[in-house]
Design a protein around this nucleic acid. Structure first.
Lengths: 207, 207
DNA sequence: GTCTATATACAGATAGAC
DNA sequence: GTCTATCTGTATATAGAC
């Protein structure tokens, strides 16, 4: 792996963390450069603008999400897949209490601005809803109902993440997650056990 | 009403709109001054800092919300009150598609920063959840269950608002609102009609 | 490819005449 | 109370030596 990709990757990683913790706008290129251990002026060798770093960050996250969904296909029961996704959201409840949802935060902040970055952020949620809808369809639910369920599910996760951040209370996330799982079971009509895949394995694959 | 309160009110109103449309940080004092028709330097006669304007904006909204809840007490059936609140959220679905939820946006943006403004924004959602919980209790639901329902309800509204913004699709808000009302009916055990109060009256009172 | 120095723009905030 | 001019800090972005 060349030096080029190495430094570039470090910058993306630093930007990823800072954008999540502080938001996209409040994060400065100086912040990113410092965290990545790269002099400020050198950043522009790898990225023409700040927006370009944002694009790279979101693209990377998009790939990770879709890779995670591929990983979840190893689970046979689509309902269990959905549950695994729901639980992956709270792999770190304390982080949600501090910084909220990495995806929801982006969509909220960038959604008002419009532009390419907003569209890219929207694609993240779009992919999640689409995948979730597919799982409901695989359970024998009609296309129309599946889409509504998927929208409801992602909506509830996002709302729960926002409340967890707002009240800085991780237990909101853990309790609401259980409520959402109960809802899932009522939708599919029977109990939905946790995935058999090792938790560590899922956490590692989680985006 | 003195000139002082007049200009001060204009500044708050301008800040309110701009903070909602652009977010708190991206909105500049120059923006606010211009929209209010006040020279930039004069802003500091009314507010010592930008944060002070933010505090005034959130305080005003908090008062409006609580005044709205008082207004809703005119409705006899608590379940109908809750429905009226749910529907008040989408009095302007197009605005949600453009700018999201005025309260959720603040909590998301300020929640990461911490500080007094974040606490004040959190109080908005806190008041809403508290009021909603009281209505469920008035329906004969246990305190514990009522609190969970209130959290679920506000969570779903917030998530729905975020998705509406993200995909810039007002129909997400209208459709999900119906889903939430269906959920409300399943919780209370029977149909919940829309409020008898004139829609205009409610819309006017809405925060 | 790397890094220092700096240009440029614009934000919040202040000074002081009126 | 009001408004113009300006200070000060800091952000993105560039120039150019190495």
């Amino acid at each position: 792996m060349s030096r080029r990709t190495d430094k570039r990757a470090k910058l993306i990683r630093a930007a990823e963390d800072l954008n999540y913790q502080q938001g996209f706008r409040p994060t400065t290129l100086a912040d990113i450069a410092q965290d990545a251990g790269v002099p400020l002026g050198n950043v522009y060798y790898y990225f023409k603008t700040k927006e370009d770093i944002g694009k790279a960050v979101i693209s990377k996250r998009d790939e990770e999400i879709n890779a995670f969904f591929v990983k979840l296909e190893e689970i046979i029961d689509p309902a269990v897949r959905i549950r695994a996704y729901i639980e992956s959201n709270i792999s770190d409840p304390e982080a949600i209490a501090r910084y909220g949802c990495p995806i929801g935060g982006l969509c909220q902040e960038l959604g008002k601005e419009g532009g390419i970055l907003a569209d890219q952020a929207a694609k993240l949620l779009h992919d999640i809803i689409k995948w979730t809808g597919k799982q409901f369809v695989a359970l024998g639910i009609s296309q129309e109902a599946a889409e509504e369920y998927a929208l409801s599910l992602v909506s509830r996760i996002q709302g729960m993440n926002l409340l967890t951040l707002t009240f800085k209370d991780p237990s909101i996330a853990t309790r609401q997650t259980q409520t959402i799982i109960n809802w899932l079971e009522s939708v599919v009509g029977n109990k939905v056990p946790a995935a058999q895949l090792a938790k560590e394995e899922l956490a590692e694959a989680a985006y």
